[in-house]
Design a binder for these strands. Structure first.
Length: 953
RNA sequence: GGGCGAAUAGCUCAGUUGGUCAGAGCGCCUGUCUUACACACAGGAUGUCGGGGGUUCGAGUCCCUCUUCGCCCACCA
């Protein structure tokens, strides 16, 4: 960046014009590049803090979900970087097997061809080229929203390094007996032409039909067994009818055969406890090749397993099905066949009835096609042994999941985990590292290898590699270890940054990804890959629908960046993000959603304009070098408010890791009390906003104007405090709104050449005193107490609050009586006691300026017509209203105030008279209520006197 | 079918263990270009905290129930 002229800021802040240069400044300074040698594992002293990005699909375009996910990660990473950690955020992309292949297949389809026309090698080359050309766009888009990723470590699941990790993982699991080849019914997508894992076949509730079909008994056509099915086309693959062994209705038929309609073959009636006698007719048709349950039954009874549906979902005699599919049905799509079969059964009188039936149907998570269960050979990972340590990790608190309600979901899934089908009949992905020898007899024909195999190691004969590729999640689950260098256990990044710290993602992929990463962490590194899982909500529209391209209800984050700035986008996402809650945004009203962030940035901009114009560029004294007695009440007030803000932000963000520096990382777990602590990003944003807007800008900055105009020591004090407060505010806000804070911070007086906020220190309270409790003040976050001393910040806070109250009182009078803003009023300040007198007297310049009033101190209120406002400590503000007063109106107002006070007092009196309250409530609460009662009673007396004097009885 | 979450001002949402908790931002109303800011300033109004029951001296806050919405999981044909 060019060095800005610190005294010249344009009147208008234009984020779109300035953000890219600021980002480039960070890159030029290598501010995001983490250094392993600075971590303890490699001899350094900075705690590592690592986040690995949930890798977006390599062809993805940034949407609001990404925006939210990456903003949250960036806030956390920037916070830790400023807090002194060696912060590493690993970026990268996922090759996204099915998704990417589908995209390119669509392009090829537009040319009138299929991938089979092109051939495997050429098609894969084409996908590579497509990724090369259009991929990774999202990484640039992440830069546009300010993501502080370490781009020198950008990863991609198909690089040679990560592919090596994939092979290593596969082979290791195979060697441990945890990878095996299985022959069973799996979920098959007839459009993608691949198998799917259980997680990839999503349930959708649908209203279908339940067909009741009569299968006549072969040797007694007068009898029939009626079975029910939702997929009548599968009946061509039926090999039996199962009834419950105890079911009296069918007992005599077991062992005999029934005639399968349409196929016109005889199939046995078998007894199997899988059948529920109470459901439907109590008889189930058994189609082992096209239903997972039936497959199990088929195994138990050693039944044939004819396949009657092709991979593309058409009816055919595919395997062991000779004579089963009539010519009229061959080649028909499965749903067309269903209609045809329904008609045929009706003609034959075999269709007993058809009822509507609500049930869940599995769909392909990528293309939404109805999944077809299908008998097939696939590779599986045995999950139960892997799940055990992953389950224990969450139980023990080695890994915490936030919000905590997901813990139960995690447990439930892990405890009922099923084996993972990892082979996909796709071309785009990691080829399964298995070769088959044509000559050697099973099981010696299977060769699993880390390196490519050219010839059979046993017989030297020809081999062919498994045609399939691995599930894309098989590379994703290695992400936290593979991006850091695994399987090289000595890799510097792995030693320095593993285990990582936070994992930030949406709950949708808890099972797809998060749970499996924890399993992989234990399987390959003997430790959890992270200690905190933060599952944030989903971005939805005002009808609570997920934002999506197909619904057209999305918000393009880059539109927001262009119109409002990246900071505004981030502000909205962060300030609206309750723990685990969804974020509702209106795609039709960007102004409503994003103006607050833009306005806040403008606020910061204008504070800076004032500051730079009035403070000048001469260096300022550090606040801790100022003589304490030179601080004004306002100075002490704003510094105390700043300390409070810092303390509250630290609480909202919470502990960064479960181990203290002294604790052994390898065994540390989250204590119960901290498993839900922190990451309240919305609270963090609100605290920071309140400090800047409601305290720094609204009060301190206004109070300091006169002092800045008068040369002298007090001006230097005011400069020092103002600069310090604003500097700290910018630090506090930087993780949320990095661009504007960086841009302004660099212009503050006293900056060294090359200094950047992104790597500046996180603010610490000057004094840990933030809260008063009775005789003590509480030190946060340590929780210690100390005695209050004269002139301490807490007292100053209360004193300055009196001045603020006086200002507000006069302003209220002005508004009530419609006194023109330009007209200065005279006001009488009537202090309740000597302390109040001192404060009000000394703060007269500030009060007078902010209330636009000329002030006098008096011992008693004026007797002539004047508006009176009581302050909390019993002091009073009286504004003479000669010429403008409406006596009736003022009396009405005072009476209203009086009756309200009476109501409150009555309630309070009743409560204090309640023995249940006085005896059971905490003593401190009762004591506070008593004090309040005394105060209110005194106030009531004063008020009543006022009313009598002014308005008569 | 099982489990979970949400319901608080017109809108989007905060409200930690029951006792100043009835709040914020936006919007709305009334003024104002007050020498950083009209993307602002000053003042103001607005809620039987989804319905009903219960526990308690006291309940947005705990329990039960109902209603509505959302999410996750699920091999009943």
């Amino acid at each position: 960046m060019t060095t800005p002229d610190p005294l010249e800021l344009p009147t208008q802040y234009e984020p779109a014009a300035t953000e890219p240069a600021i980002y480039q400044g960070w890159l030029d300074a290598a501010a995001f590049t983490a250094r392993p040698d600075r971590t303890p594992a490699l001899g350094g002293d900075r705690p590592p803090f690592t986040i690995v990005i949930p890798p977006p699909n390599v062809t993805a375009i940034l949407h609001t979900g990404h925006g939210l996910n990456n903003t949250v990660q960036d806030v956390i990473v920037r916070w830790r970087r400023m807090a002194g950690d060696e912060a590493l955020w690993v970026p990268g992309t996922d090759h996204a097997g099915i998704a990417t292949q589908n995209v390119v297949e669509k392009i090829v389809a537009a040319e009138g061809r299929t991938r089979f026309d092109i051939g495997r090698e050429a098609f894969v080359a084409r996908v590579h080229a497509f990724v090369e050309e259009t991929g990774g766009v999202i990484l640039d888009q992440l830069r546009a929203i300010g993501s502080s990723c370490d781009w020198t470590r950008t990863a991609y699941t198909l690089t040679p390094e990560l592919s090596r990790a994939v092979r290593e993982a596969f082979v290791l699991l195979y060697e441990r007996g945890l990878v095996y080849r299985g022959h069973r019914v799996i979920h098959w997508c007839p459009r993608c032409l691949t198998s799917l894992s259980d997680e990839e076949a999503e349930h959708h509730d649908e209203t279908g039909k339940l067909y009741h079909i009569a299968y006549p008994v072969s040797d007694d056509p007068s009898r029939a067994i009626t079975v029910a099915t939702t997929r009548p086309e599968t009946m061509l693959g039926d090999v039996a009818v199962a009834v419950h062994p105890e079911d009296e209705r069918y007992r005599d038929l077991v062992g005999r055969t029934v005639r399968l309609p349409i196929a016109e073959i005889d199939i046995p009636v078998i007894a199997d406890a899988y059948t529920d006698p109470a459901f439907g007719t109590g008889a189930v048709k058994i189609t082992p090749a096209h239903d997972p349950n039936d497959f199990e039954v088929g195994l138990r009874h050693a039944l044939a397993m004819p396949v009657v549906i092709t991979p593309t979902g058409e009816m055919a005699e595919v395997a062991d099905a000779a004579g089963r599919v009539p010519a009229a049905l061959r080649g028909l799509d499965r749903f067309e066949a269903r209609r045809r079969i329904e008609a045929m059964l009706r003609e034959q009188g075999r269709l007993v009835k058809v009822e509507t039936h609500a049930h869940a149907v599995r769909h392909c998570y990528r293309c939404d096609t109805v999944v077809e269960p299908r008998l097939s050979d696939q590779w599986f990972v045995r999950m139960a042994p892997l799940a055990a340590p992953a389950l224990e990790a969450v139980r023990s608190g080695r890994v915490r999941i936030m919000p905590e309600r997901w813990v139960a979901v995690y447990h439930n899934w892990m405890e009922n985990i099923r084996d993972w089908n990892i082979s996909r009949q796709l071309w785009w992905g990691h080829r399964i590292p298995v070769w088959y020898c044509a000559a050697c007899p099973p099981p010696d024909d299977v060769i699993v290898s880390r390196d490519d195999v050219a010839a059979c190691p046993r017989c030297g004969g020809a081999v062919r590699q498994d045609e399939d590729v691995l599930d894309t999640w098989f590379s994703s689950w290695l992400w936290p270890i593979s991006t850091l260098g695994w399987p090289d256990r000595e890799a510097r990044d792995l030693k320095a940054f593993y285990p990582t710290d936070h994992l930030v993602t949406a709950p949708e992929i808890l099972f797809f990804w998060v749970a499996r990463m924890i399993m992989a962490g234990y399987a390959f590194m003997d430790d959890a890959p992270f200690h905190t899982v933060y599952l944030h909500g989903t971005v939805r529209d005002t009808q609570h629908r997920k934002m999506s391209k197909s619904l057209g209800n999305g918000i393009d984050p880059l539109d927001v960046v262009r119109l409002y700035g990246a900071d505004a986008l981030r502000w909205t996402l962060v300030s609206g993000l309750g723990m685990g809650a969804d974020l509702i945004l209106d795609p039709d009203d960007l102004e409503k959603s994003f103006a607050p962030g833009r306005n806040f940035a403008t606020k910061l901009w204008n504070i800076a304009r004032f500051l730079l114009g009035n403070v000048g560029d001469a260096p300022v004294t550090p606040v801790d070098a100022l003589r304490p007695e030179s601080l004004t009440r306002a100075d002490r007030w704003i510094l105390a408010r700043l300390d409070a803000a810092i303390g509250e932000v630290d609480v909202a963000l919470g502990p960064a890791r479960p181990w203290a520096d002294a604790v052994d990382r390898s065994t540390a777990t989250w204590p119960e009390s901290q498993r839900a602590a922190g990451l309240r990003l919305n609270e963090y944003a609100e605290v920071a906003r309140r400090f800047v807007w409601d305290e720094l800008a609204a009060w301190y900055l206004e109070s300091v104007k006169a002092r800045l105009a008068q040369p002298g020591e007090d001006r230097e004090v005011a400069r020092a405090v103002l600069v310090h407060a604003f500097d700290a505010a910018l630090r506090l806000l930087h993780p949320i709104v990095p661009f504007i804070t960086e841009g302004l911070w660099q212009r503050l007086p006293g900056r060294l050449e090359g200094e950047q906020l992104v790597t500046a220190a996180w603010p610490r309270p000057l004094s840990p005193v933030v809260e008063r409790q009775g005789e003590h003040v509480v030190l946060k976050p340590a929780g210690m107490t100390m005695n209050v001393s004269v002139g301490d910040p807490v007292v100053s806070v209360a004193e300055f609050d009196l001045a603020r109250e006086a200002v507000e009182a006069i302003r209220r009078v002005r508004a009530d009586y419609a006194i023109p803003p330009g007209r200065e009023v005279a006001a009488l300040l009537v202090p309740a006691n000597a302390a109040a007198r001192r404060v009000l007297d000394e703060e007269r310049p500030v009060i007078g300026r902010l209330a636009r009033a000329s002030l006098a101190l008096a011992d008693r209120p004026p007797t002539d017509a004047a508006a009176h406002v009581l302050l909390a400590d019993g002091s009073e503000v009286a504004v003479p209203l000669a010429g403008v007063i409406d006596l009736d109106k003022e009396c009405a107002r005072l009476r209203g105030e009086l009756s309200q006070l009476d109501r409150q007092l009555a309630a309070l009196t009743q409560r204090l008279g309640n023995e249940g309250f006085t005896s059971r409530a905490p003593a401190a609460v009762v004591e506070a209520e008593r004090r309040k009662h005394d105060e209110w009673t005194a106030r009531r007396g004063q008020l009543a006197g006022k009313v009598e004097a002014l308005c008569g009885a």
